[in-house]
Amino acid sequence: MGIRVELRGVSYIYPGSKSRALKNVSITLRNGMCYGVTGPNGSGKTTLLKIISLLYKPTDGHVLYNGTDPWGGDITSYRKRVVYVHEKPVMVRGSVLDNLALGLRIRGYNGDQIKERIERIAVKLDLSPLLDRNARDLSAGQRQLVAIARALVLDPDVIALDEPYSNIDFRKRKRLSRVVNELRGKGKLVVISSHDIGLLVSLCDYIIYLENGEIVLEGPAGEVYRELLSEH
């Protein structure tokens, strides 16, 4: 079963800060869809993704997963259904394999299950030759792919990718796009942030445009694209 994520009047203030990074954001995200989040630097893209991924608790307002507020219950069990992939992901000590196994180990999978799942995802993202490499020796692009694989291997229902294309070369981009389409087809909810509106339009169904922590424009990809073009 997929997950529908609703934000109701969500505001977020970073600890120690005074201004709101997100201001009264309300939106409904449906499963089986890809949402593209864009906007200038500091407009709140990452904050929005982390709110959706249950990493940040809203200062005001509510996040609802299929109608219930995860922050009112066992947050860890909800977090097991959503992953957030950082733009500049960190690798833990050890090999690529160790990194891919991280979430599975946390969830208590046994060695055979871990191996099988990793092999599957490695083939899909073309990471098999890297498995034994020291994760900290990878290039920025390779790290991003490994981080995405590290998230997808957990088979989450909600996937939030923060600037996933920033360091990935053209050929790998196509492979990643195929994966995103596949996820959407399987009824997952995908949220991607990017500066590149053209890319989001080609990949996603719906675009959210943020400015100063507020949604200033949203709608089906094609419409938003046309509107933005006509503005400039």
Partner: peptide, 23 residues
Amino acid sequence: YYRELALTLGASDKQAALLVFRE
């Protein structure tokens, strides 16, 4: 670096603390 990573991969607070300690 690591607490957020652990949490998003489904770790409990205790597991996250362990990962931070390990790293």
